[in-house]
Design a protein around this nucleic acid. Structure first.
Lengths: 108, 108
DNA sequence: ACAATCGGTAAGCCATCACTTACCGTAAGT
DNA sequence: ACTTACGGTAAGTGATGGCTTACCGATTGT
């Protein structure tokens, strides 16, 4: 049920921007804060949420701390989504092809 | 940028339950409200959010209204996720295989 | 025609949460 | 040793949003 955390984590726009920025390569907290319109503590809090959700991981690099995307949370989210994919297509098709009533058409 | 709506829509636990319930087949507002611990108007509001996000569609069925999963929003979300997938794996591998310093190991 | 069912909307309340400033531990540079 | 850079945490505040009850239009049944 960690996909719940991942979804709530990615719901926030700013947090999503952090995550999307990390797609173009690892970055430190300061780097991210410099590119975003929020303070450094805010970024730190966002990264904490993303980390709990399994979407990012961190690694110490001297006094800094480098963050990068973690495939774990991403994979779990993908699997959850795929549960709907095939089912959705089938139900959708069935529903559309069924024009309310097999035969008829009343027009006063 | 509709995937943003989809993510915020799926962030709420109750709304996620509605969506997951719809996976096992179409249902009316009343049906959903009966199975969930919230009132009918609440379900109606959740369905509105899901519809805006492109995750569900509705179809009138007499005085009722049947909701079912819409593949559109789902597909968009999936594509967005896939943008990270390959990149994440590569960055992750690189980061892990690089043990800080090529050679070394100081132990006083 | 009337009555009943179904569902979307409005108004209001309360909890959650994103952001800020201030503070503190830790690691590197001199 | 001191000083500086980096980052995580605490406390407080304002806004967002999910829930409820009340109301109203639309459709079906008698």
């Amino acid at each position: 049920m960690a996909y719940g955390n991942a979804l709530t984590a990615l719901a926030d726009p700013t947090r999503r921007r952090v995550f999307e920025r990390l797609r173009s390569g690892p970055a430190s907290v300061g780097d991210l804060a410099a590119e975003l319109p929020v303070s450094r503590p805010a970024v730190s809090q966002h990264l904490k949420a993303l980390k709990i959700a399994g979407l990012v991981t961190d690694k110490p690099d001297g006094a800094r701390r480098v963050y990068y995307i973690d495939p774990d949370g991403l994979g779990e989210l993908r699997r959850w989504l795929d549960q709907f994919w095939d089912v959705a297509l089938e139900a959708f098709k069935e529903e559309v092809e069924k024009p309310r009533k097999p035969a008829g058409g009343k027009k006063p």
